[in-house]
Design a protein around this nucleic acid. Structure first.
Lengths: 146, 146
DNA sequence: TTGCGTGCAAAGGTTTTGCATGGCA
DNA sequence: TGCCATGCAAAACCTTTGCACGCAA
């Protein structure tokens, strides 16, 4: 019943450290696995999934899916600071996902809640559009406009 | 290049009809397949995926992911309305799609463009969250908060 | 020593791809 | 007739489960 009790293992520490290190961005199971492999700390995929599940139950991470991506995203849930919420811009042309930390977004969400009663889930919401690089390259080579 | 050109086939009509019939709800590839099977109109899974992809490109459907579910959701997008000028809010709980006309959006989009160089495509962008009705019913039955 | 932790292999589910055939225009 | 459309099978992914062994307490 006390699912918060857990052993201190090499694997658990490595995963948690990585999550905290990247608390301003979300990570995927793959990115965790790749990183750990890179630094010579092999941890099985299964173990990563199981730890994330446990951390999720404990409320230490958040899990969400980003539109257009296939795998789940996880982010360390720092309960002290609420300012690490960011939103996402996805370029429809190059596919790049931009993480945007911006105070403006809170105003928007508050407005939508106050005036329309809708509670926005920033972790799931993605703005689609064209990023600045693609805008430029499109302007330089404008040949068609259908 | 003109990817909007497409043959009129039995399969395409069947899929589009079903989408329009259910334009107030989202559907999944499975629900489409099941329904068509039920009414004796077999269409291969592959074909359904391919048509949905094409309809997505044409802007005739929207694609969503709903938290906690594994497969993607699709909903017919009514092109008559001026959907380029307002927000779409998708309730993650009841699935309702809300069209939100609000002068605030211009400020938001301008801000994102001015400060971040990103041109938002309102037609594709969807805000996920919880609608007012669901918020209320959730408040009435709050039993656990972990 | 006890029981949770670990990781390989395999299974389960969703989506994509290859390829030969079918059918619209 | 020329392409695009179709659908089966297989592949590619992501995630979960089974099971034997490892290891923290």
């Amino acid at each position: 019943m006390n699912r918060n009790s857990s052993y201190k293992t090499r694997q658990r520490s490595a995963i948690l450290d990585f999550l905290i290190e990247n608390k301003d961005n979300h990570v995927t199971v793959n990115s965790i696995s790749d990183y750990l492999e890179q630094v010579g700390t092999h941890v099985g995929i299964t173990t990563i999934y199981r730890h994330l599940d446990k951390l999720l139950e404990q409320g230490l991470v958040r899990k969400y899916t980003i539109d257009g991506t296939t795998s789940a995203c996880y982010q360390y849930a720092n309960t002290d600071e609420k300012c690490h919420q960011h939103f996402h811009l996805k370029c429809e042309r190059c596919g790049k996902l931009i993480h945007l930390n911006c105070s403006h977004i809170n105003e928007i969400c508050e407005h939508i809640y106050d005036d329309h009663g809708f509670t926005v889930n920033l972790y799931r919401t993605v703005f689609y559009g064209i990023c600045s690089e693609c805008s430029e390259s499109l302007m330089n080579t404008e040949e068609k406009q259908e």
